[in-house]
Design a protein around this nucleic acid. Structure first.
Lengths: 166, 166
DNA sequence: GCAAAATACATCCATATGGATCAGAAATTC
DNA sequence: GAATTTCTGATCCATATGGATGTATTTTGC
């Protein structure tokens, strides 16, 4: 077991998190690992894609927003959001009303069932968050969040120059 | 334009990054936003799913590893990795040799074409990384990376108690 | 005030994804 | 040393995904 590969799998991750691309790799690792856990859980327990609960979260938290607005919170392609909103409506979790200001737009509002379900999922998400970030103390958490906020506020995060697809 | 929604879309993100779930939301936002940019770029320029380059990265960096090992670096379902490795082989970027120690396992080795391609992509990824993390100064970056390392090292990241699917 | 451009959302279609299963090989058990 | 279990990787199939396009509405430009 110890002599074919000169690789120590235990240290492969640590090495990668010290390489040129350490920042990208670190964030990527955390999120891929979390997705494996969270996506599976939401899909099993609630029989919906993870992004359905993201959309539900947005609609419950900011009732009246348009599908378009959800993209500001959860950057996903437009059609993905369109579909999960349709799913949420089929399940009676939200309803859409055509905006009187703009006949193209639809205001999204949660039903009480939607609010109830979101609270249930949110509780689980909070537990999960505590689990993931439990390794950090309070100050470290604050620091981490502030750095994330800075990164999120960066203009180039959503509009890349390096990877422009022209 | 200003009177139907009481929502200021500019501040919706900031509010969300101050809510109960701020930590999860923050990381999620950064990664979704980056994925939109990076996935599209890799798919357009190289006509392969993003995870193909992750696998290529792993194989070039740690030649001789098994498909299984890639999962330690890039936590994805096993069949996803199996497929992208098959893709990389079809394209002549890697080749697999059955391990002489273990007839089930295959050692993965990059071809020179694979190494060349990876270097090309890595260069772009570095540019992208600079773009994303350019909003942080050197010390902030170090801090951010250390906190990511701690989170990544957490036992519960990959093996959740809160969201166990059993 | 009317044609052209832009915008919001839905739908189409080809591809990606992931859980489940399968095949083959090794390790373990008795 | 045969049977059982465990492990690695491939494949199947139903569903998710996202770019492109379509439809309806609003905004812009002249």
């Amino acid at each position: 077991m110890e002599n074919e590969t000169p690789l120590d799998m235990q240290h492969m991750l640590e090495q990668t998190l010290s390489s040129d691309l350490c920042y990208l790799m670190a964030v990527s690792y955390i999120v891929l690992a979390n997705n494996q856990v969270t996506n599976r859980y939401i899909e099993r327990e609630y029989d919906m894609p993870v992004h359905a609960w993201s959309a539900l979260y947005a609609i419950v938290t900011y009732p009246g927003l348009r599908a378009k607005d959800i993209q500001h919170l959860f950057p996903r392609p437009q059609n993905t959001i369109s579909r999960v909103v349709a799913l949420l409506e089929r399940r009676g979790l939200v309803h859409q009303i055509v905006s009187d200001q703009d006949g193209r737009a639809k205001s999204l509002l949660p039903t009480s069932a939607g609010i109830t379900l979101l609270n249930e999922i949110k509780e689980k998400a909070l537990e999960r968050q505590d689990e993931m970030f439990g390794v950090l103390n309070d100050e470290e958490r604050r620091t981490f969040l502030n750095l994330c906020r800075k990164i999120a506020a960066g203009q180039r995060l959503c509009h890349s120059e390096a990877m422009r697809t022209s």
